[in-house]
Amino acid sequence: MAELAAEGKSPDVVFWVGCAGSFDDRAKRVTKEIARILQHVNLNFAILGEEESCTGDPAKRAGNEFLFQMTAFQNIQVLNGYGVKKLVTGCPHCFNTIKNEYPDLGGHYEVIHHSTLIQGLIDEGKLRIQGGTYKGKKITFHDSCYLGRANGIYEAPRAALLALDADLAEMKKSKSQGLCCGAGGAQMFKEAEKGNAEVNHLRAEQALETGAEIIAVGCPFCHTMMSDGVKHHNKEAEVRVLDIAELIGHGLQ
């Protein structure tokens, strides 16, 4: 972004990579697929690189409103400094925070999650999917809380899966009644409280019950949680956990 700005250019959209997308090895692969899709449709995009910082979601949800606001103000300063109008992100937590919580702090942007972007590109005919790889394969989609219940986005990721000609199987708990993967509310960064089971094991069990070969996700934290859950049930050889961006990216020529 800094380089573009130095040249006096501005991108159509800023790709907000997010911390997981920047540092988590599994999520980095998803980041690359999102970038590949953006390049594929010739979208003029930029990343903030070093100037991007945590949105503050885990801090706010862990009760540290001070830290949240300080981080948020810094990000807003950067974004407003570049005159950014539109962002796309692969993380529902970043998406939710920037979209819903930054406006009160002076950050007003159009933010879209990559599943919505993909749905739009498919609808516009800009993204033609070679359905071969996943045609007829049974795929189930795990709704992430911060995309689904938090923001009412249930159809965009499913539309992307349908574009693959996949056999979409719903879990017994899905959409507005979907079960959390267990990572939200800063749980990702702490040990779970005492209980008789792990949330991600339970959710993975629900996903496996569908008989799907692929569990599709749209969130880096769900991705980790579901992968670990599948491993817990010793199914990692048969069942893969893939992000919507990977599924679509694999189908591109």
Partner: peptide, 10 residues
């Protein structure tokens, strides 16, 4: 419906 409650948390 609570994930914590369903997994035996307090």
């Amino acid at each position: 419906e609570c994930p914590a409650n369903q997994t035996g948390k307090l």
